[in-house]
């Protein structure tokens, strides 16, 4: 009887803890949104965070975009040339970049580069009691620390995805036109007749905004709830990358099924 009781207690406690995490997360998101106006007023803090999240992620995004575009068009060319349709390599590269690979690969890289750094920073600020010090001085960390970082991540990711997409298309152009000898005019005209501004470009950008929100919420939440020890912060950083990567892939499927149906 005692064993059964403690088993039930164990199940109940685990369940309640999981539910409590969801509740805390939801309240945290609400408080972030309520702190948005003050984050918009402190432009200097926002600038600093856009620099940290966006500008410092530029090198990895530039390199990745170029190479993803190049490899896409190389693979596409090898398949399409068998059907004498190698001109379609441009539209294939552009469509797969704009619809899927740009937002998803960009967001995955961004989660690894900026999301993890954000969690580690917040977690260390908590474990070294900088957040408590701010609270002691009656400075609200929500407005001063969390909200600018949240907004910066949400702004930076769509901009990075735009750059990723443009470089990917350029990489595809380099490989297929300059190297493999696809006709220049056919490459661009096929691309621009197949790629729709609203359906492909705008939907891709909506995806990247959604991924930015996801990464920002996960990274900040893990940082705030990290156990204040070196092991706790390292675990929280790992969880940020794992959770936001899986979240991006899952959310991408849901968004794709809504948008391109």
């Amino acid at each position: 009887m005692n064993g059964f009781q403690s088993l039930m207690q164990e199940i109940g406690r685990t369940f309640l803890e999981k539910v409590a995490v969801f509740g805390r997360g939801f309240l945290f998101i609400l408080s972030l949104f309520s702190a948005m106006p003050s984050a918009l007023l402190r432009v200097d803090l926002l600038m600093k965070q856009i620099y940290v999240a966006g500008v410092l992620s530029l090198p990895i995004i530039l390199m990745a975009g170029l190479f993803v575009g190049m490899v896409l068009s190389l693979q596409g060319y090898n398949i399409l040339v068998e059907f004498n349709a190698e001109e379609a390599v441009g539209s294939m590269t552009a469509l797969s970049l704009l619809r899927e690979l740009g937002p998803v690969v960009g967001a995955l890289l961004f989660a690894g580069r900026a999301g993890s750094a954000l969690t580690a920073e917040i977690g260390l600020m908590r474990s070294t009691e900088q957040i408590s010090a701010l609270e002691m001085m009656a400075v609200d960390p929500l407005k001063f620390v969390y909200a600018p970082r949240f907004l910066a991540v949400v702004i930076a990711l769509p901009l990075l995805v735009l750059i990723f997409n443009a470089l990917g298309v350029f990489g595809g152009y380099l490989v297929s036109v300059s190297w493999l000898g696809v006709d220049d005019g056919a490459f661009w005209s096929q691309m621009s007749s197949q790629v729709d501004w609203h359906e492909d470009v705008v939907n891709g950008m909506i995806k990247s905004v959604a991924f930015g929100l996801l990464i920002a919420v996960v990274a900040l939440f893990q940082g705030v709830n990290a156990i204040p020890s070196s092991e706790g912060v390292s675990n929280a950083t790992t969880r940020t990358v794992v959770h936001s990567s899986l979240g991006i892939l899952g959310l991408d499927f849901i968004l794709t099924s809504i948008m391109f149906n």
Binding site: L159, L162, A166, V169, S192
Partner: peptide
């Protein structure tokens, strides 16, 4: 940050006029 925003605007116009219709 200015350079970053400018780059993304360039990328947007490149995508808008060269890549899409």
């Amino acid at each position: 940050v200015g350079i970053f925003v400018l780059m993304s605007l360039l990328a947007l116009s490149y995508i808008a006029f060269q890549v899409s219709n």
